[in-house]
Design a protein around this nucleic acid. Structure first.
Lengths: 97, 97
DNA sequence: CAGACTAGTTTGTGATACAGACTAATTGGC
DNA sequence: GCCAATTAGTCTGTATCACAAACTAGTCTG
């Protein structure tokens, strides 16, 4: 029985990964406004994604204010592809005459 | 921002609904062996699905032993279809050159 | 009658999504 | 210079929830 990756399965993180996988890099505020999460929530999700090795976090400064940039790793892209495969498998679970 | 139906989004329940939507009716043990859940877990999920109005539960007896049959309701089928639509929307979130 | 099995349900627990409080630094008004 | 407000995140408290183990109710076997 194939199991869905719970790190990716969470809707907020799924959206984050989908956005990141299409965009090369994104900063905190971009994701914040794109996804409509609270800051605390976004921060927590990015932590999880980093711990899973799915995103890389680069902390720096934009002039004098802190600025964090997120990037989807190769492992993240692969896990995401695998996730969609598993979901397709489930989707095929119903239809047969 | 379209939100995924959390009742359906849980992998165990998604599988339950996919099976039920393709099968007209199924009993406890069939789902148990098909999905490989614990009895407690399956029972709890079926409760949730019933409370959401996605499955109908019919309790009866098979001879003298209790026998419960589950059926996917129309609302369940619609919610499931809507769920896949939302997921497709998310899936289209990344890809464009 | 005692022990084992069947079909579920209830309960306890550990994990976790989310938001609101908090920190640290910067900028603007007076 | 100083107070307030803003920015960029992080930390903490809470309420939910998936899961399994224990339990219930009743049946069957020896």
């Amino acid at each position: 029985m194939p199991e869905l990756d719970r790190v990716i399965h969470e809707p907020a993180r799924l959206r984050i990964l989908m956005v990141l996988s299409g965009v090369d890099e994104a900063d905190f505020n971009f994701l914040l406004s794109t996804l409509g999460l609270s800051r605390g929530n976004l921060s927590a999700h990015m932590d999880k994604l980093e711990q899973a090795g799915y995103v890389a976090i680069e902390k720096g400064f934009n002039g004098k204010i802190p600025h964090t940039v997120y990037r989807c790793t190769m492992a993240g892209r692969e896990a995401l592809a695998e996730y969609w495969r598993q979901l397709d498998a489930i989707r095929g679970l119903s239809a047969q005459p």
